[in-house]
Write a protein that binds this DNA or RNA. Structure first.
Length: 469
RNA sequence: GCCCGGGUGGCCGAGCGGCUAGGCGGCGGGCUGCAGACCCGCUCCACAGGGGUUCAAAUCCCCUCCCGGGCUCCA
């Protein structure tokens, strides 16, 4: 039984989906106006692992994520570049998808673009107007937080505490904490027609509209980074529960800890902005996943290159263990030591999944996995053979863990550029042999490479290589 | 100002009343033609500071210091 921390109650609760085996899971997606950074990676990897684990446990998970493609920052950037905001959003959405792919995040069932839910958003605002939770002014339509008694229940704040603000509130609002549902804009900006005139949706309403459209008035899991708790998620609750009357809108509120670089939140001006696409150029994406898994998903992480390198080493040692295990010869006998190994393995499974069930405690689970790896290595050091069934059990369990965490997926396949470099060395050494008229050895190299589909062709003193088709 | 987190051994990081996670790095040894991988040992029980509660505190309470996040841009 999975237990998971709920921000609403601030306790770890037993996870029980509303509708039998099905899990409706929603996570706040990106605003696509720039490349994804490692903070995004942290958050989306965390929810990817949650979704994978739920599925591994047998739940039928529908994982929905929005893409914010209508937003002030997109509009500003598009204007700077003299392009259409939607085109700009599509471009960065493509980059986002590429980054997700590289990071091995494939668990999302549906990405929903805000711009494709304008009708639903307008309908939702209408309902809120009809029920008296929203009001119109010259600048837009606003949610009246004073009408929604529960406003503040997620972030545990009282409305009167919310009187301080960094940005001067719109003067037409009744209360400073009221938030925009619809922003009235001029025709020269991107927008849509609505009963309240031309304009575009407020920031919070898209998520609510998308969730209500696909999942209805109640969902199981709603995730996002901790910084979104207030006001974004608070606003979502207000909108949804005010509109549908159903409570709770979300049964389990999940929030991931923030990632900082150099002790501070990433920002371009601080120069500590690290993009996903830059990091994966030099580092294995699985190492990044592992690094995040070595911290709890709710803990803050201060990113350090050394930590990533350390994770890379750890990942390497896990791969080595798996390869050794794959390579070991098998037999049918079950020795006393193998019986002990099997016993240990059963104990490992209990602990490992026990930790994952305890609010996805991946650091402790990983510690157990490292212990298992060490035990297997130790065994393999002293033994020639391993019981076939035990080998199968161990390997399939490790593969399962790899599936949950999104690591250990790569078979040791030599990548193309590495192959080129290897052949360069081989050709160089072989050239030296030919110079010394050591043709027997040189030919053996050529023959053996041909056997595996690599053709060497000598042209004078030069050697070319190609792959057999 | 208010509301949240966090400060743990060379580094990263779990733990959240007793049972001294784990990883990375370093050093020594084993195994090895050499290297790597792997194994063993060491790096000697560290918990921001000061009070308190308790038979027992990194873990609970109080105070102080430092760092980060939120308070309608944000994963």
């Amino acid at each position: 039984m999975l237990r998971i921390y709920n921000t609403m109650t601030r306790t770890v609760e037993e996870f029980k989906p509303l509708r039998g085996n099905r899990v409706y899971m929603y996570v706040c997606g990106p605003t696509v106006y720039d490349y994804s950074h490692i903070g995004h990676a942290r958050t989306y990897i965390a929810y990817d692992v949650l979704a994978r684990y739920l599925r591994e446990k047998g739940y039928s998970v529908f994982y929905l994520m929005n893409i914010t493609d209508v937003d002030d920052k997109i509009i500003r950037r598009a204007r700077e570049r003299g392009v259409n905001p939607i085109d700009l959003a599509r471009e960065y959405e493509r980059y986002f998808m590429e980054d997700m792919e590289v990071l091995g995040i494939q668990s999302v069932n549906l990405y929903a673009r805000a711009s494709e839910y304008i009708d639903e958003i307008v309908d939702l605002i209408k309902v809120l107007m009809d029920k008296g939770f929203a009001y119109e002014t010259e600048t837009g339509v606003y949610f009246d937080t004073s009408r929604f008694k529960d406003y503040g229940k997620l972030s545990h704040r009282r409305p009167e505490e919310l009187s301080v603000h960094r940005i001067e509130p719109d003067p037409t609002k009744r209360n400073p904490q009221d938030f925009a549902l619809w922003k009235k804009r001029d025709r020269d900006e991107i927008g849509w027609d609505s009963p309240w005139g031309y304009g575009r949706p407020g920031w919070h309403i898209e998520d609510t509209a998308i969730i209500l459209t696909h999942f209805g008035p109640q969902i199981d899991i709603h995730g996002g980074a901790i910084e979104l708790t207030f006001p974004h998620h608070e606003a979502e609750i207000a909108q949804a529960e005010a509109a549908t009357g159903k409570k709770p809108f979300v049964r389990y509120w999940c929030h991931t800890g923030l990632l900082t670089v150099g002790g501070e939140k990433m920002s371009k001006s601080l120069g500590n902005y690290i993009l996903v696409r830059d990091i994966v150029k030099e580092h294995n994406p699985e190492a990044l996943r592992l690094m995040f898994l070595l911290s709890h998903y709710r803990s803050p992480i201060d990113f350090k290159w050394r930590s990533l390198e350390s994770s890379e080493s750890s990942l390497n040692s896990l791969y080595n263990m798996v390869e050794r295990l794959r390579a070991v010869e098998t037999d049918e006998e079950l020795s006393e030591e193998e019986r002990k190994l099997e016993e240990y393995y059963e104990d490992f499974k209990r602990k490992f999944y026990g930790y994952l069930d305890d609010d996805l405690d991946t650091p402790r689970a990983m510690a157990e996995l490292f212990k298992l790896a060490s035990t297997i290595n130790k065994f393999l050091d002293t033994r020639e053979r391993l019981n076939a069934l035990l080998k199968l059990k161990l390997l399939s369990e490790i593969e399962r863990i790899g599936r949950i965490f999104g690591i250990l997926k790569k078979r040791p396949v030599i990548e193309m550029d590495l192959l080129e470099r290897v052949l360069e060395i081989l050709i160089d050494v072989r050239g030296e042999l030919r110079m010394r008229r050591e043709f027997e050895i040189a030919d053996r190299i050529r023959d053996r490479l041909r056997e595996i589909g690599i053709i060497l062709e000598d042209i004078g003193y030069q050697t070319r290589w190609r792959l057999r088709r």
